[in-house]
Design a protein around this nucleic acid. Structure first.
Length: 856
RNA sequence: GCGGGCGUGGCGGAAUCGGUAGACGCACAGGACUUAAAAUCCUGAGAUCGCAAGAUCGUGGGGGUUCAAGUCCCCCCGCCCGCACCA
């Protein structure tokens, strides 16, 4: 038997596609549909991993399918090339981030090419190219002019040993990951994008994104977190601390529970807290303790609730004779609302936990339906749902939804506050105290203050002569780079040494892919032709930030006249794929072992040298757990098509897929079977005639045409695993048909199989196409058409149930009437048997579906 | 802690609209070919009982709606993801 020569075939067809410029994007002609297929561009981390293969294989199937259907297709590739790992590598291996990044790009580009993806490489760029970040700097200045960028001070995790800002993931148990030093919270002046200016639109427009997963839209909606409520202030009982004569302002979504107010709590970062701490050492210690925890919301909310009584008291707004204690509590977030809350422990779990710990009053004011007001008690669980107000003065007897507006009205009448819409969404802090990022084109001048760099002086290029042998930001300690004349007055000034968050780079790259303009960030005409992206594919981990920032950027760029996209929505269709996972292994000392270091022998796992191995969970492939599988050796051994076929088989694309050697071998077997069947067909001269129009089409012909229809539907729905299953069925059909069916039907089936297979296993398809004597490339061949008369079934099997249990099958023509179906069902001997001793109550007939006999 | 998701044979999964649960693949078993093995091909298979025909049970657990529930509703359990300086 002839083996499919994958290595030779893959090189041959990749060259043929290149030579014929098959995948160059050409803007849509009049009347032609455009299709912009995009996978999230990779961070050049070193080598491709299986997650990349899966992501790009999905996009490639769709891109090749759309092309076969006649669409104008844009399917570009580039590099998300700035970021922290390059600096970590620089420190660890003494290699310049630029060198490291470019080497990785070169490696990964070759790997992508070896997988045969239908990419338009003429659109390639890396975000670390000065040509790219030049335009990003120009965008920054345009947004600055529109007041969509501004400066304010904000909290960061500071590592005092490394002299550097830490990412949340670099803070482990309140300590720096590398130095082990206690992390401090520090205030730094930073640049922010005013994403909150679009909060309402970003939320409202989610409903128009009907080709986005529901869960991503929900996550974004929750992230934006629009809530309607009341901003009110509590006046101090007695003398107010200086600067706080107007009391403490709080925001609440539950003004109906005001009569249940037990205390007021300030965030440890609240300005009043800081002021009080100057004379209260206990409070100062508490603030320091909270600051050492880290800045992430998760850490703050998971920490055990703790607080300090400030001794201050405030008046209850509805009854000034009643006063409430003012506490500082670690669960109050400064970043949300006003950084202060009033607590109603009976109706908020966090407040309740805190109140119980410090023996503060718990006054139930919302009575759940069905509870008795005289016996209702709140113990360990707060009631956060609706109910009827009680113990609540003028609100007594009102349901929650009526009490809220009444309470707001009363506070407004008292002049203590006003209705307010609050967003959880905060402005996007985009300053990074790092080297390997886009320089912020700003100059700090002693006389003129913060001055934007002149457009003609862009790009502000990163210096290359930097070192990573000492802590801190290399840009900051560079001897000359930051010295520059002020663009306004010309005197000696200092460059901004912060760089931009890499999320900025990825917020507009898809627009630049449409056309690489030298003079503008975005080729507006090309972008108008291609945007929005018709299908965007990437990991669920980007569900919120990257996608939300991009949606913000398209709106901002539109409003700065850089982009002609009225909807402001960059991605019309979104698909979030699952991860590639693998079993994990550890040796007897608990150290992680890679799959190549273990073998399965005599029913147990061992290392190659025979040491015992512990098998752990199936987890996302990661370097730290050493459970990664490198695609390169797989491609070499089995071929690109096998790797592609495997990652698209079995698991639904939105779910995780487990990489197994057995699965790869299954995929390899499939490729070989296709090759064998195609050779058999090609060698049979009788197969070259056209299928005859006989009265009764063969089962194979019907299967062939049904498969054309089904695979197209599956690809469009991104149900790659279902398409794969149907291609298996067609191949099995061809294999079974050898003896009995006409050779011409077999020929037709083989050609269709090759065409349907082409988006999945493009090299194999080209080789088969050639063997079948077809001219031209499959890559240029149109998607086959199915004959509807062969797809529609004339006969059906209809189950007959007795009391919902299947008892018989009726083989009947499509569209058989209710009456006949009922008669046939009752006449069936198996049914008669099941009905013995029962009396007929009802017969439910759903034509073409089911007959259900109800009997007692 | 808050928010989101997932759960079907030994395994990955299919069932797209409430209507035959388990398509397709993997692993497994038996057989063919072979001196032998690999590869390949054929056959079998949810569980339990049964020679068989067939019966009963069965989609994480418990309840409900319905002629009919993997699918809809309520409660519970388990696992996974996100939480703003990783990308």
């Amino acid at each position: 038997m002839t083996r499919y020569p994958h290595q030779q075939a893959e090189l041959k067809w990749q060259k043929a596609w290149d030579d014929q410029n098959c995948f160059l994007s050409v803007p849509p002609k009049l009347g032609q549909k455009k299709s912009y297929v995009l996978e999230m561009f990779p961070y050049p981390s070193g080598r491709l991993h299986m997650g990349h293969v899966r992501n790009y294989a999905m996009g490639d199937v769709l891109a090749r399918f759309r092309r076969a259907q006649g669409d104008a297709v844009l399917h570009p590739m580039g590099w998300d090339a700035f970021g922290l790992p390059a600096e970590n590598a620089a420190m660890k291996h003494n290699v310049h981030p630029k060198t490291w990044t470019h080497q990785n790009i070169a490696t990964m580009r070759e790997q992508l090419k070896s997988l045969g993806f239908s990419l338009d490489w003429t659109k390639e760029f890396a975000t670390c190219d000065p040509e790219y970040y030049h335009h990003q700097q120009s965008i920054f200045l345009k947004l600055l002019a529109k007041d969509l960028v501004y400066r304010k001070s904000s909290k960061v995790n500071w590592d005092p040993v490394e002299n550097t800002v830490l990412a949340n993931e670099q803070v482990v148990d309140g300590k720096g990951w590398r130095s082990g030093a206690q992390v401090e919270t520090r205030e730094l002046e930073q640049w922010f994008f005013r994403i909150t200016a679009y909060a309402d639109d970003l939320l409202d427009a989610l409903s128009s994104l009907d080709r986005w997963p529901e869960k991503v839209r929900t996550m974004q909606a929750n992230w934006i977190g629009r809530s309607e409520g009341l901003a009110l202030r509590f006046n101090f009982a007695g003398a107010a601390p200086s600067g706080f004569a107007r009391g403490i302002e709080v925001f609440t979504t539950r003004p109906d529970t005001l009569f249940g107010a037990s205390f007021v709590a300030l965030s440890p970062e609240h300005p009043l807290t800081a002021q009080l701490a100057t004379t209260n050492p206990k409070l100062a210690i508490f603030i320091a303790k909270c600051a050492a925890q880290g800045t992430s919301e998760e850490v703050i909310e998971r920490a055990e609730k703790e607080g300090i009584d400030t001794g201050l008291r405030v008046e209850h707004p509805f009854d000034p004779t009643q006063t409430l204690a003012v506490w500082v509590a670690n669960f109050v977030l400064m970043g949300y609302g006003t950084g202060a809350i009033f607590a109603c422990p009976a109706n908020d779990q966090r407040d309740l936990d805190f109140a119980r710990k410090y023996q503060l009053p718990v006054i139930p004011v919302v009575l759940p339906a069905g509870e008795n007001p005289d016996t209702y008690l709140v113990e360990k669980t707060a009631w956060t749902g609706d109910g009827t107000l009680f113990h609540s003065g003028f609100l007594d007897g009102k349901p929650t939804d009526e009490a809220i507006p009444l309470a707001i009205k009363e506070i407004e009448r008292l002049g203590l506050g006003t209705a307010k819409i609050q967003f959880r969404l905060r402005d996007w802090g985009a300053s990074r105290q790092r080297y390997w990022g886009c320089p912020i084109p700003i100059v700090h001048c002693k006389t003129c203050g913060v001055v934007p760099e002149k457009e003609e002086n862009l790009p502000v290029v990163l210096p290359e002569d930097v070192t990573f042998d000492q802590p801190g930001n290399p840009l900051d300690r560079h001897p000359t780079w930051k010295n520059t004349p002020c663009p306004k007055c010309g005197t000696n000034a200092r460059r901004e040494t912060d760089t931009l968050d890499t999320f900025v780079d990825s917020s507009w790259y898809y627009a630049r892919f449409c056309g690489l303009s030298d003079t503008a960030p975005i080729d507006t005409l090309a972008a108008k032709a291609w945007l929005p992206v018709d299908q965007y594919i990437g990991g669920i981990e980007h569900a919120i930030l990257h996608l939300l920032y991009s949606r913000f950027f398209t709106r901002a760029l539109r409003d700065c006249d850089v982009l002609d996209l009225p909807s402001g929505e960059p991605f019309a269709g979104l698909f979030t794929q699952g991860m590639v996972t693998h079993e994990t292994y550890r040796d007897k000392n608990g150290a992680w072992l890679s799959p190549e270091e273990v073998v399965f022998e005599d029913e147990v796992w061992k290392t190659t040298s025979g040491e015992p191995v512990t098998v752990g969970g199936i987890e996302k492939m990661s370097k730290s757990k050493r459970n990664t599988v490198d695609p390169a050796p797989i491609i070499e051994k089995y071929g690109a098509d096998v790797a592609r076929w495997f990652v698209l088989s079995d698991s639904p694309p939105e779910r995780d897929v487990e990489w197994t050697e057995a699965g790869v071998e299954g995929a390899a077997r499939f490729v070989q079977r296709v090759w064998t069947e195609v050779l058999k067909t090609a060698e049979n001269p009788a197969s070259s005639t056209k299928p005859l129009k006989t009265e009764a089409p063969s089962e194979l012909r019907k299967l062939t045409h049904k498969t054309i229809k089904a695979v197209a539907e599956d690809i469009q729905a991104l149900g790659f695993n279902r398409a794969v299953a149907k291609l298996y069925e067609l191949l099995n059909g061809i294999r079974k048909a050898t003896a009995t069916d006409q050779q011409s039907d077999r020929r037709e089936a083989a050609e269709v199989l090759v065409l349907l297979l082409a988006p999945f296993a493009p090299h194999l398809a080209e080789s088969c196409w050639e063997k079948l004597g077809k001219t031209g490339l499959v890559a240029n061949a149109p998607w086959p058409e199915f004959l509807s008369e062969l797809v529609e079934e004339k006969m059906l099997n209809i189950p007959v149930q007795v009391n919902g249990k299947k008892r018989a099958i009726l083989h009947v023509p499509v569209g058989e009437t209710r009456e006949i179906l009922e008669k046939m069902a009752l006449a069936d001997p198996a049914i008669a048997r099941s009905l013995v001793g029962l009396s007929l109550k009802k017969v439910i007939v759903v034509p073409d579906r089911v007959v259900n006999i109800v009997a007692k």
